[in-house]
Amino acid sequence: MAIIGGGPAGLLAAQRLAEAGCRVRIFEQKATVGRKFLVAGHGGFNLTNGEDPAAFAGRYGTASPLFEQLLAHFSPTDLRRWAAGLGIATFVGTSGRVFPESQHKPADLLRAWLRRLAELGVELSTRHRWLGFAENTGLRLLNEALGEEFILEPAATVLALGGASWPQTGSDGGWVPLLEAVGVRCHPWQPANCGAEVAWSPFFKEKVGRAPLKNIALSCGGHTVRGEIMLTDYGLEGTPVYALTPQLRAALAAGHSASLLLNLKPDLAPAELARRVAQRRPDTSLPAFLASALSLKPPVPTLLRELAGPAPDLGPSLAALPIPVTGLRPLAEAISSAGGVPLAEVDARLMLHRRPGTFVAGEMLDWEAPTGGYLLQGCFSTGAWVATGVQQWLAQK
């Protein structure tokens, strides 16, 4: 059994298959496995989310019907139970996100995981690059340490090479031509969970630089997300911006103007906001009024002047300030990517129609989800699902 790729999806597929009695070998092009997994843990090791299961699948957009099945097969509860089996206790934070207890670092989980795989007899071959397919069932591989190319004939193959974000970790999407060579149609890569570009004036960039806006709501395309954003020299970043990437991307692709509507006081009812705005005296400066009546301090006055002019109509501007978005940040900067292998190219077991015995897991598949534990959960769930699919396929041979 060959697993190509040493990220979460590939490693979990390997574990499940080894536990079922399969002989498994993992091939990873980098010198170590789990690089993107470790990088993802730098900003807070968010494994999954404690959200209600009925709402969880909806986080995967157009792929939600598939993820209803995947999450039923390997749920957030299953993920937490799996981590506990490796000695990593977890807890649900106030935001609903699930983290390991503070004494556990990402590297601790990965080390425990690799020990478990070794105990199960899984063989790990690093610095091995997949070069494509050979005949009907073979794989062409390059041992980069020795500079030797060889062909492997596994009973089944799981491809888990990742998407195209964070290329420095090995997740560069360079496998697309190898699948296209056997007739698998792939969707172009696009950034997901990334910052939005705004053409700030030079004055705004110099005066504001980087500054947070807390307890706000952003809206785009009929979707609204609460949270905190960061104003940057290129535009905006932060969880609400990332969550609205699909809507922004669709508007930009259609050639439409893309705008984010910013609500600076989402907890105030419209009538109460209007009442407070009406109390402003003509001799009160904008910064002083915003600070005293609405607890809005810099950089809000500068932001309002930048986007709504020197004398903004405060009611509409505070509740729905349009921020014109000119583009999205580059793919290499994105937290995740959209694109890759369309779901139409695989069957219900995630096996390629054009390559029986070859399964696809993780971010190679064309799905996306917001940050908050949904990305990692998606990778784990696809890995568990294909492990079961491989066993079913082998049993039918």
Rank of each mutant, 00 (worst) to 15 (best):
I3G: 01
F37G: 00
A278C: 05
Q396Y: 02
E272Q: 14
L17F: 00
N263D: 15
L178T: 09
W200C: 02
P188F: 07
P202M: 11
P270I: 05
A274N: 08
P212M: 08
A55Y: 07
T245P: 10
P316K: 12
A145C: 00
T284V: 15
H256W: 09
T94E: 15
P202F: 07
F203Q: 13
V208E: 08
T62W: 14
E101R: 15
L159K: 13
A250R: 14
G195C: 07
G255I: 05
P154S: 08
Q69V: 01
P301M: 09
P310A: 11
G44I: 09
P65D: 06
A291M: 04
L262A: 10
R81I: 07
D267H: 10
R275P: 04
P282M: 05
P298K: 14
R23M: 12
T382E: 04
A320M: 04
A291H: 11
R23K: 14
R354P: 01
Q247N: 09
P282G: 03
G195R: 02
I335D: 00
P8S: 13
K205D: 04
R276F: 10
A63E: 10
I88D: 05
L38M: 08
T382M: 06
R80P: 02
E144T: 04
A156D: 00
F133A: 05
A253S: 15
W175L: 06
L124M: 11
V341D: 02
A288I: 12
W385I: 02
A160T: 03
D78F: 00
V390L: 03
E206Q: 10
G85V: 05
C22P: 01
P316M: 09
E228D: 15
C194F: 03
S75I: 05
L38Q: 07
R59E: 10
G173W: 09
P330Y: 02
R210A: 11
A338L: 13
R349F: 03
A83W: 15
K265A: 11
C22H: 15
A274M: 09
S201A: 02
L161K: 01
A164N: 05
L71R: 07
T224C: 13
R140L: 12
K265H: 08
L376S: 00
L231S: 03
R129L: 13
A89R: 14
P106V: 11
T48S: 15
A145N: 00
R111V: 04
L268R: 12
G255S: 06
I229N: 03
A217F: 10
W175G: 03
A320K: 05
E237C: 07
L294W: 14
P100K: 13
G85F: 08
Y234Q: 12
S219H: 09
L286P: 05
I335M: 12
I3L: 03
V182S: 00
T224A: 09
P167V: 08
A311V: 06
H187D: 14
S219E: 14
A319H: 10
Q69P: 00
G10N: 07
A192S: 15
G93R: 14
P370I: 13
V39H: 02
L236H: 03
L139W: 13
S285H: 04
P167H: 11
T239V: 13
A258Q: 03
F27R: 00
R59K: 14
V341E: 03
P324R: 12
